[in-house]
Design a binder for these strands. Structure first.
Lengths: 200, 200
DNA sequence: GTCTATACGCGGATAGAC
DNA sequence: GTCTATCCGCGTATAGAC
């Protein structure tokens, strides 16, 4: 791995752990094992490096989500699988956390990938829900755009609760809670299981 | 208002706007219109001042929430009223945002009020739901602890989505979404309205 | 491409005068 | 109680040698 690559990876880690304001060029260089001069040769400065790091993290996050969304199964199954996917809960969402960084939000270039990623997630979930409704897998009373926003918000808020409590438990509860609420809108017809059971 | 008071208020504002790492003693002093010496006379340093600010914000937040929770009306009404209450959405949650501040989370003293506030909120909402179930206002299938976590997470995550989009719209959608999901569990019996209508 | 040197203001405080 | 002076290291680069 060359210097530029190590710099981007170190920046990604530090942005996740400490945010933009809390991350200094010096810390990035040290973690990457790269000198001052080298960093400024490859990147114009902290914002430039942060942009590369944020873009990569955003791309990765979309790819991981899309893998769940385009898997086989009913819409409800895929949404549930996405919600239950393994996550580094206590570290929080590497994209969502940037939302609290005033210097990131103040810079349209840095903000764009954050905005786009979260907007894409909502859109994609709403599409899945619409698809599920059309196939009769989901109750017609379920409103895709608002419900999709709720699902993404539950994830983002779940991270907040987990970090506050220093425990994954509230995150798991929040997920179990939405899944329970959504279950009331899943048509039991196509499956041969019993009625939905209340989950922990 | 004396110097100590102005310092605490300025700190509250800055913690909300810029977080702990992004807030310097100098910035606090300038906003408060107070000199260096005065600040260090009244407070031991940045963490001490932050503690006073965080505690006050936490107390205020609980008081505002409790005002909704203990109002007259059914449990569902009070939960809905709490969710729909006016908020400075684009500024985010002054308590929830601290969750992203590594220096706050690393200090047990600073972290405690954040943890307690969010834990209290979940507990209180779960109590309301239990009460509603016992009175037959809410469906017995609704699980109070997990659903309460979902409700708080939706709020916290709604702030994240709104800040990312620089628009209150996704926040409003997320709230509308949970309210829609919860509506399926509200017993229609005691009211004389028609069946729940899908909301925007 | 990478290193070392240099710069200048800020972050976060302490000391002592008034 | 509040002010001014002083401190030291960090944040965020730029310059120029190798």
């Amino acid at each position: 791995m060359d210097a530029a690559e190590r710099l981007v990876e170190s920046t990604r880690e530090l942005l996740w752990e400490r945010g933009y304001t809390g991350t200094s060029p010096k810390a990035i260089q040290q973690r990457a094992g790269v000198g001052q001069g080298s960093m400024y040769h490859h990147f114009a400065g902290k914002p430039d490096l942060a942009l590369a790091a944020i873009r990569r993290t955003a791309d990765e996050m979309r790819a991981k989500a899309e893998a769940q969304f385009s898997a086989p199964g009913t819409a409800a199954d895929r949404i549930a699988a996405y919600l239950r996917r393994e996550r580094e809960v206590l570290k929080g969402c590497p994209i969502g956390r940037l939302t609290q960084d005033p210097d990131v939000m103040a810079d349209p270039v840095l903000r764009a990938p954050v905005d786009e990623t979260l907007a894409w997630l909502r859109t994609r979930l709403a599409e899945l829900m619409t698809e599920g409704r059309e196939r009769g897998e989901l109750d017609a009373a379920l409103d895709p755009p608002t419900t999709a926003a709720t699902v993404v918000a539950t994830l983002q808020g779940g991270y907040v609760l987990a970090r506050a409590a220093d425990s994954v438990h509230p995150f798991d509860q929040a997920i179990a809670g939405v899944l329970g609420l959504l279950a009331a809108h899943v048509s039991a017809a196509p499956t041969d299981e019993g009625p939905p059971v209340p989950r922990a």
